[in-house]
Amino acid sequence: MARYIIKRILYLIPVLIGVTLLVFFIMHLAPGNAAQIILGENATPDQIAALEKEMGLDQPVIVQYLRYLGGLLHGNLGNSYATGTSVTTEIMARFPYTVRLTFVAAVFSIILALPLGIIAAVRQNTWVDSASMVFSLIGVSMPIFWLALMLILVFSLKLGWFPVYGADSWKSIILPAVSLGFMNMASIARTTRSSMVETIRQDYIRTAYSKGLNEREVIMKHAFPNGMLPTITVIGLEIGQMLGGSVLTETVFAWPGVGRLLIQSINGRDTPTVMGCIILMTISFALVNLIVDLLYGVFDPRVRTMYR
């Protein structure tokens, strides 16, 4: 087990090199110039050139990248072009907000999605099934920023229950978490339904009924643990994605998370900050996936024997 985990973490190294390489060169190819943006529109070409030299931007891109990588090996993510403070400090100031939002959104979506998916599967082809699937179809297809705006319109502006933006009180997390969680709820519910539909047709479910168990016992003790695996995968992917920062939600609600930092730094051609955000995304995505794979082993004894 420990060996398996270490192996998986070592796999992360080539992934990180690939990701940083790709992002670094894309940032380099993108139009716009960090020195120009820092100095403003009135800067003379001489001033820009001087600043570029100072920042090392006049060097060939491969040298810039290797320099960056060298810093990375020492745990140094560099300094933000925009603010001059260290990228690590910048991200660490934002990350707790993203984690908090992710957690609340995930809890909200799971609590709603699991019963919805299970009931739809058990009452397959009835109006309950249709209703819950239409509900989650709406969730999948609704643009998240539109939902966010509607929530603000109704619950903040009309009813005044929640603040419009910011992260000042516990109340301010509700609307962002709901709009973020609603979309995830939809895909989790659909996955749960289809895997449960599959599971309740299995022979061992019939065996369970033949023992004299009632429907609730059969569904909760026999079908659910078997139908969980695809659901866990989807939940893992959603959480991994949300941890990297939810750009749209954070932007609409002015939530001070990593997603908004990323957008701001892309606009400012702030390569070190962009790189920092991307690395954080990659690592959290990979770690969540690792946890998902380990959870597979918890739920399915057949998988457990494979973790060597």
Binding site: Q202, D203, Y204, R206, T207, A208, Y209, S210, K211, G212, K221, H222, P225, N226, F299, D300, P301, R302
Partner: peptide
């Protein structure tokens, strides 16, 4: 009744047992 008065042995033992219990 099921299990106590009448019980059934199913045809395919490979799929008749719950894999996670």
């Amino acid at each position: 009744m099921r299990g106590e008065k009448v019980s059934m042995i199913f045809q395919d033992p490979m799929t008749s047992l719950n894999p996670v219990i």
